[in-house]
Write a protein that binds this DNA or RNA. Structure first.
Length: 593
RNA sequence: GGUCCCGUGGUGUAGCUUGGCUCAACAUGCCGCCCUGUCAAGGCGGAGAUCGCGGGUUCAAAUCCCGUCGGGACCGCCA
């Protein structure tokens, strides 16, 4: 070993010891005679000091070094006098008097500062990712990610789970997201697909009698990027046999409830046990199936009051089967006309025709462009339903139910951001259950499963598949944390007859189903146990625990928004011979001139 | 496929609205000299950007216009 101790571990009690350290020059303070160097390794910082009188060679060597050079230093640990203790440093009570210095490597001046937390252009960070990863922020994030995964592995191991790897080269499934394809050399014109998730394989492991499976699984989806979406990402993938949905939910809840105090002790749960909302309740109260429950601003239904009222915009919307719902923005009656216009623009961008408002002045007077259309009683009823008090701002949208939910749900989150309502250290975990089994796809004229093809209806709703599929609920559950879906799963269908009915409901023809999922259907004929599972997006979870707003910050080598790796410059063209081996002829789009 | 924002020394920004006083300012980093207790060390000095790229308007463009490239956020998409 190049070192006897790490840079972060030396304390007062080590004083007098001769130690050998190795690490990077984090910062140097050259006083001409005395030289101080902060030496950094992953475990911390320690101050080296070189005195020309006692060890001229070490002093001369440290006079030459620059930021990010790699050093090995032999020296003696010395207590610092009380007035020179650095309380900001774990090793601040001591310093190491250098007696021998070996330069293990020099370094170019880095393109950005590693020893300072200042914003750097993200492209530059990604291009020099190996330097970016030296920063305290990234080391912190990678450490947290490791701790999360380690806790999960230990916990699931203790609970009888087996970690099993599944193939990266698998079969394409045109349902769902776009696949990343890998052309076959041996089979001309044929492709493997990288898994969007190990969904089928984990179910087959249940047929295989594994009973309790998990995997830290890499998943691939060729879709456009977002702050919380990368082309490849990591899921905690779990599948269990002989379980009902509560068993799966309880497991995850117990695991994460125990994990978070260990990995992020400064975070606290909004509520335990975690609330379980039905889909309908989530929509009615928050307008979304992935709500942020840390703050109020809940939606209030005034459809019944708007119906037949004097305000034709509201009444007309109800007439056509729409809803009218509002949000009481408590104490924000001071919003200016300009701010209200901005909010109106915001909901318009998302499909609402407009945003009605009523401001209750401190005096109790109403300021609103719409109250004149209501009778006094109608206005009173609305204020009462909205629990309006002086100083409040009431906002309303009237439209088709889907538009009302969507726009008010977004507006609620938007307002909370504007008003800084969500405490980042509070974790508002909740479960959303009882999803509709399928949504009607108006364009395709067919039912579209809300989770996936193998999700079972709720046991009590199974019979509805023949009579009223629109009322059937799925045995699906989503775990939501502060406006983000962090896990989702379901109890699966293990009954062939039911599976056939589901395929038929969603318009998947028997031959096509056979071709794509023949291996699944065949497997289910050999004693498939009742089973279900869940998958949890680890990047997203770690991102939220790390207080980051982009999953790139918790992935060592992420892609940019354009799905490029700017460090390695991937994707890149292959050699002509490689294409030939794969039987590929290119048909590239014309170069734009 | 669409909408919006950004692009100025190595890094982070100012300047742009209202073109000329700017061969571009500040901070930090870098280089050199001085300095024995600093820890974002300090002092003095120095180098470093033809303002993403191309075209246009103009006597004159970092600044105005058009195009283009790159980056970011979002919508669509992501069962």
């Amino acid at each position: 070993m190049y070192k006897t101790h790490t840079c972060g571990e030396l304390r007062q009690t080590d004083a007098g010891q001769t130690v050998t350290l190795a690490g990077w020059v984090h910062r140097r303070r050259d006083h001409g005679d005395l030289i101080f160097i902060d030496l950094r390794d992953r475990f911390g910082l320690v101050q080296l000091v070189a005195d020309p009188e006692t060890s001229p060679k070490a002093h001369a060597a440290l006079g030459q070094v620059r930021s990010e050079w790699v050093l090995q230093v032999v020296g003696e640990v010395r207590s610092r006098p009380a007035e020179m203790v650095n309380p900001h440093l774990a090793t601040g009570e001591i310093e190491v008097v250098a007696t021998a210095v070996t330069v293990l490597n020099q370094s170019e001046t880095p393109p950005f500062l590693i020893n300072k937390e200042e914003p750097v252009d993200e492209n530059t960070r990604l291009k020099y990712r190996y330097l970016d990863l030296r920063t305290p922020r990234m080391q912190r994030n990678l450490t947290l990610r490791h701790q999360v995964i380690k806790f999960i592995r230990d916990y699931l191991d203790e609970h009888g789970f087996l970690e099993i790897e599944t193939p990266i080269l698998f079969k394409t499934t045109p349902e769902g997201a776009r696949d990343y394809l890998v052309p076959s050399r041996v089979h001309p014109g044929m492709v493997y697909a990288l898994p969007q998730s190990p969904q089928q394989l984990k179910q087959l492991l249940m047929v295989a009698g594994i009973e309790r499976y998990f995997q830290i699984a890499r998943c691939f989806r060729d879709e456009d990027q977002r702050g919380d979406r990368q082309p490849e990402f990591t899921q905690l993938d779990i599948e269990m046999s002989f379980v009902q949905r509560e068993d799966v939910m309880d497991l995850i809840e117990d695991m994460y409830t125990k994990m978070i105090p260990v990995v992020t002790p400064h975070k606290r749960f909004l509520r335990t046990p975690w609330p379980r909302l039905t889909y309908q309740e989530a929509m009615d109260r928050f307008g979304k199936d992935n709500p942020d429950i840390r703050f109020g601003l809940e939606l209030v239904d005034i459809t019944d009051l708007a119906k037949g009222s004097g305000f034709s915009v509201f009444a007309g919307a109800v007439e056509q089967g729409g809803h009218v719902r509002g949000i009481n923005v408590k104490g924000q009656g001071g919003y200016s006309r300009k701010q209200l216009d901005a909010l109106t623009d915001y909901v318009r961008q998302h499909g609402a025709k407009g945003l009605a408002y009523i401001i209750v002045e401190e005096s109790g007077e109403l300021r609103s462009p719409i109250t004149k259309f209501f009778s006094e009683d109608e206005t009173k009823a609305i204020l009462e339903r909205m629990a309006a008090e002086p100083g409040d701002l009431l906002l309303f949208v009237a439209d088709k139910p889907a538009v009302v939910y969507d726009t008010l749900g977004r507006l609620r989150v938007h307002l909370a951001e504007e008003l800084s309502l969500g405490d980042p250290d509070v974790l508002g975990f909740c479960w959303v259950i009882d999803f509709p089994f399928a949504f009607w796809d108006e364009e395709e004229k067919r039912w579209d499963p809300s989770h996936h093809l193998f999700t079972s209806p709720l046991p009590e709703d199974k019979a509805l598949i023949d009579t009223a599929p629109e009322r059937m609920r799925g045995a699906q559950y989503d775990l939501v944390l502060n406006n983000n879906e962090v896990a989702g799963g379901s109890i699966r269908i293990h009954d062939q007859a039911l599976q056939a009915k589901v395929f038929s409901l969603i318009g998947l023809e028997k031959e096509v189903a056979e071709q794509r999922f023949g291996h699944m259907l065949e497997a289910f004929q050999f004693g498939a146990p009742p089973h279900g599972g869940i998958a949890s997006g680890l990047d997203r979870l770690v991102m939220l625990l790390a207080d980051e707003s982009n999953i790139r910050e918790v992935i060592a080598f992420p892609k940019n928004q354009n799905a490029r790796d700017v460090m390695a410059d991937a994707p890149s063209p292959a050699d002509a011979g490689q294409y030939k081996d794969l039987h590929i002829k290119l048909d590239l789009p014309e170069e734009k001139k």
